[in-house]
Design a protein around this nucleic acid. Structure first.
Length: 598
RNA sequence: GCACCCGUAGCUCAGUUGGAUAGAGUGUCAGUUUCCGAAGCUGAAGGUCACAGGUUCGAUCCCUGUCGGGUGCACCA
């Protein structure tokens, strides 16, 4: 029945080849990888083999660009003085061509000031590479399961985070060269659909489209009818049986309902600019025929026991209220199946038929226990093989009052209406700032800004915690927001409109502090994106892009570009060009549009 | 009762397998319009990292306990 709770049923809330050669023997290593490798080698050489180097970007500018923190822990293990060990490490540490200055600081930190030519070369390489210099990891088949609404009702704000986070993850995985399979595991099966199809028959059977124009309203009326009329409730139950039994007449009604509901979803996806279409829909109904097979296979694997007529997988790893092994029911005593059964079937399909290497479930944190149980069962039954299964949890979207986001009257907010409000608010802002633009242009900008703001507000916070939804802060042009980043991008574009022709292959020369600081940040793009591949946290990329925008502004204040001449001007334009490409690429990974003017 | 998550500046949030004087934005105050578009930039003030112990050269981070908030826990999804 989809991944979201159904609050009406349950009463809870729900360059350059030469540059490449000069950098190092292994092309395109990230700075972190490169320094870590060299630092580990140095630790090995001084007798601290295997000690982690603990390399990280410097915590403060006065500490240089990167720092090695692992020496102190190694000294502890070797029972020697950390500063003396640091001196020995420094003597053998080979960062030739990478660092221009190394120093020992504090109790035994090694601070690294990167070499300007090294940085310039890395930026130059990024500028000529389609992937901004990111070395692609081994290609894998990665599924991102996200959005997954319940088709019985319209999408509401509860579906927003999964849809936004999942789509960004799919974009990042795809950028990194993986074969990405997007999956929309919609809730299109179950008892509710008996009620809904029965109600459809009673009402506008001839014009389902009209009746289902407002799905929310339709559902509410059906539920009232179900609760008030025992006769209707019986018919609804009969429809469930007929639906699951393959009765063509009921199936036809069901298909009609699903079609209309999916059309509602598609309107949201289109507005949101999310890469989900009909081809990605693989709902719960698709696994229906396999469910008895799942039960058989579990029996064969010796995992199934019967309890009070229900078929149960008992897991010692999970405890009940009275501290007994917890059972997970896969088949009810009336013969019906549960969503765990469907999920098990989906895992079998994804492993055996799709041959995936990794599956990411972008689903509400509240379902974490369900996924732990699901993964445990599949591992024990051998259904997943080596396929990596990961629940990517996220917190709840809250209103200004810190409680789950609702309308003023306490109802659920339709997602499509929220998105339209974002566009309207952005339109008002753009019209106020720039009234001379034609309305069509302002509408276009408002769409990018409004939707971008909603997405960025979500993505820029750590996904695991709840976050507070606030129109004013997300639509502000100041601070760490989408509009600020979009504006920063248009400013760089504006520089190029005035610059005229310039040498796109000109060498980058880093003299001023502001130039170097910007270059260091630009050279970290690969490390930032690769981190997402493993931890699936997107807020690091947001923070990074904001830093790029800020560093560019400082660079722009400190270093004249257009007023400079010759090689200096060309070099600075190169930095501006890489800034623009980094912002555009990064925002694109987040699913946020950039604009040339706004 | 058991399990998981959370508690950091007035507010919204970062803080990497334990590192240096805990950071950013916003708001407040002050300064700044000689290259793009001030929707910018610079600076200041703002902290008992919920609390109490422990581990150690070093703890916002790890361990134990307490308080406070949230979520989940067998025939819904």
């Amino acid at each position: 029945m989809g991944r979201a709770y159904n609050s009406l049923i349950k009463n809870s809330s729900a360059g350059a080849r030469h540059a490449r050669r000069r950098i190092c023997s292994e092309p395109n290593m990230t700075i972190l990888q490169l320094i870590s490798q060299r630092a580990s080698a140095a630790l090995d050489a001084v007798g601290a083999a295997g000690a982690p180097a603990h390399v990280q970007p410097a915590s403060k500018p006065e500490f240089g660009d990167y720092q090695i923190n692992g020496v102190m822990a190694a000294a502890k293990q070797l029972r020697c003085n950390p500063r003396e060990l640091a001196t020995k490490v420094l003597a053998v540490l080979d960062l030739a061509g990478i660092a221009e200055k190394l120093e020992i600081a504090g109790p035994g930190f090694i601070n690294i000031h990167l070499d300007r030519q090294f940085l310039a070369d890395k930026c130059q390489l990024a500028l000529t590479d389609a992937h901004l210099g990111v070395e692609l990891p081994t290609r894998r088949r990665v599924m991102v399961e996200y959005s997954s609404p319940n088709l019985a009702k319209e999408m509401h704000v509860g579906h927003l985070r999964s849809t936004i986070i999942g789509d960004a993850l799919a974009r990042v995985m795809s950028f990194l060269g993986h074969e990405v399979v997007r999956a929309n595991h919609v809730g299109d099966w179950g008892t509710q659909f008996g009620m809904l199809t029965a109600f459809l028959v009673e009402n506008h059977q001839d014009d389902a489209g009209l009746a289902l124009n407002d799905l929310e309203d339709f559902y509410r009326k059906a539920k009232i009818r179900f609760d008030e009329s025992p006769e209707f409730a019986d018919r609804a139950r009969d429809y469930v049986v007929r639906l699951q039994g393959g009765d063509e007449q009921v199936l036809q009604l069901w298909r009609r309902f699903v079609e209309v509901s999916l059309a509602h979803c598609q309107a949201v996806y289109t507005t949101l600019g999310v890469g989900l279409g009909r081809e990605h829909v693989h709902g719960e109904s698709a696994y229906n025929d396999d469910l008895p097979v799942v039960v058989e296979e579990l029996t064969r694997a010796g995992l199934l026991t019967e309890n009070d007529g229900a078929k149960v997988v008992v897991l010692e790893e999970f405890r009940t209220q009275d501290d007994k092994a917890m059972g997970v029911i896969v088949q009810k005593k009336d013969g019906g199946y549960l969503y765990t059964t469907t999920d098990i079937s989906a895992i079998r399909y994804r492993h055996a038929t799709l041959g995936l290497d990794r599956v990411l479930y972008v689903v509400d944190a509240r379902q974490s226990q369900h996924f732990q149980q699901l993964f445990t069962i599949c591992r024990k039954a051998g259904f997943a093989g080596d396929m990596q299964l990961q629940h990517i949890p996220f917190g709840t979207m809250m209103g200004d009052d810190g409680k789950p986001f609702k309308t003023r009257s306490g109802g659920t907010v339709k997602l499509i209406e929220l998105l339209h409000e974002a566009e309207e608010r952005a339109f008002a802002l753009v019209s106020a700032k720039n009234p001379d633009l034609e309305e069509g242009e302002r509408r276009h900008i408002a769409h990018a800004v409004g939707i971008g703001a909603v997405k960025y507000a979500d993505l820029s916070k750590s996904r695991v915690s709840d976050y507070i939804f606030n129109w004013e802060t997300m639509l502000s042009f100041e601070g760490n927001t989408a509009p600020y980043l979009q504006y920063a991008f248009t400013r760089v574009q504006s520089v190029f409109r005035k610059a005229g022709d310039y040498d796109a292959a000109a060498p980058i020369v880093l003299e001023e502090a502001a130039e170097k600081q910007l270059a260091v940040a630009l050279a970290q793009f690969d490390d930032v994106v690769l981190a997402i591949e493993s931890d699936c946290y997107l807020h690091g990329l947001c923070q990074y892009l904001y830093q790029i925008a800020t560093l560019f502004s400082r660079f722009y204040e400190a270093c004249p570009i257009l007023k400079s001449e010759g090689a200096l001007r060309a070099s600075r334009l190169q930095l501006a060009a890489l800034t623009a490409r980094t912002l555009r690429t990064g925002l694109d990974l987040l699913g946020i549009e950039v604009l040339d003017t706004m």
